[in-house]
Design a binder for these strands. Sequence first.
DNA 1: CTAGTTTGTTAAACGGTGTTCATTTAAAAT
DNA 2: ATTTTAAATGAACACCGTTTAACAAACTAG
Lengths: 202, 202
Amino acid sequence: MGIAERKLEEKQEMRKRILDAARKIFLEKGYEKASIRNIANEISYSPGMIYFHFKDKSEVFYELHKEGFRLLMTRLKVLDSVADPFERLKAVGRVFIQFAQDNKDYYNLMFIEEPASKTGEAGGFQIAKEAISHLIELIGECQRQGRFQHADIEDFSFMFLSSVHGICALFCKDRTTNFQNKTNEELMEHGYACFVSLLEKG
Amino acid sequence: MGIAERKLEEKQEMRKRILDAARKIFLEKGYEKASIRNIANEISYSPGMIYFHFKDKSEVFYELHKEGFRLLMTRLKVLDSVADPFERLKAVGRVFIQFAQDNKDYYNLMFIEEPASKTGEAGGFQIAKEAISHLIELIGECQRQGRFQHADIEDFSFMFLSSVHGICALFCKDRTTNFQNKTNEELMEHGYACFVSLLEKG
DNA sequence: CTAGTTTGTTAAACGGTGTTCATTTAAAAT
DNA sequence: ATTTTAAATGAACACCGTTTAACAAACTAG
């Protein structure tokens, strides 16, 4: 069945071409302002064609959503080599912040914006769930080393994630401009350092 | 000039009627999905009429944006009676979180969503600036009482705001569902308590 | 090799969006 | 009573996501 195979490949290639165009448009304009017509135009096809390859706009979006998570995960995987769990935890936050700085638009797509119809909840959010399990486990390790003894693991994990996400979210929505004496990057890094020094005392 | 006065009043009343409808629609559907036609329909006027009273959709939005800030500020003002600055700081966080819980949609409008054209930057963001100045001052007071000695005030303020906002932002975008053993409210409050206990050690 | 079927694509259409503008209506000023 | 002004309208413009009838190309069966 060499023909069916080739057909499948062609279809996947078309999917890829659509996603490449969608990535460009989505990251450029954000979810709402990007249009199916823009994406189709980018690759010189009719808008309707996209609906042969994807269910709707939000499905295209969630493909990139997942892509963003894979990107972030790749960066986080590197930290497996860090032996000390607390050092690893601190690095997780730094990687998160660095990721947000390098990929403001992805970060928006992944954690802030979201299409109304949650087509890919199972897809995009599954990865998020795994990431959180990882974080909880990591904090468990820290506790086994004597850190954060009095805290509930889930509460503490949520708090850690909130703090890091808060830094990134303020950055991504340009709410950092009200703190003026520093660049955004400095503010984020100093803010995180500040948080870390609290952690070190706990 | 009793007539001119009455005319002005009528115009302001029309503005108010539009804003009442807009509040309902915006808080119900969010910025993007709410439409000028929805709002106009709500008060049985033509869509075009709104453009006589407001420059565009984002100007209507920013009026509610400011309204949300006034609401939050009213809640924060109550804390002026709390003498101890650190107690006041802790309460500020609680009020923020409570506000987000009670007014999820306002919180979204105020801190997360935003129209592309930033008509009311001067308006809505001015209040935010004041609020931050207040926060910085409050943290300064805490320092004068011996707390957070080693931290830069701006960095620390940003960190505090990030943590609190992070908690609220995760809640408002339904990213709390991945922590399952608690209700959202419990998770937020326990998470914040966790953060506060870190502060108490710093 | 032909006839029929499947597949990928298109153009047009539907009902929606923000916004503009000529036109109408009604009230105020002359 | 007539002119001027202010307020509201509704049609129009250029978009939007999505559906669908039509269509050409490619594949399959006889």
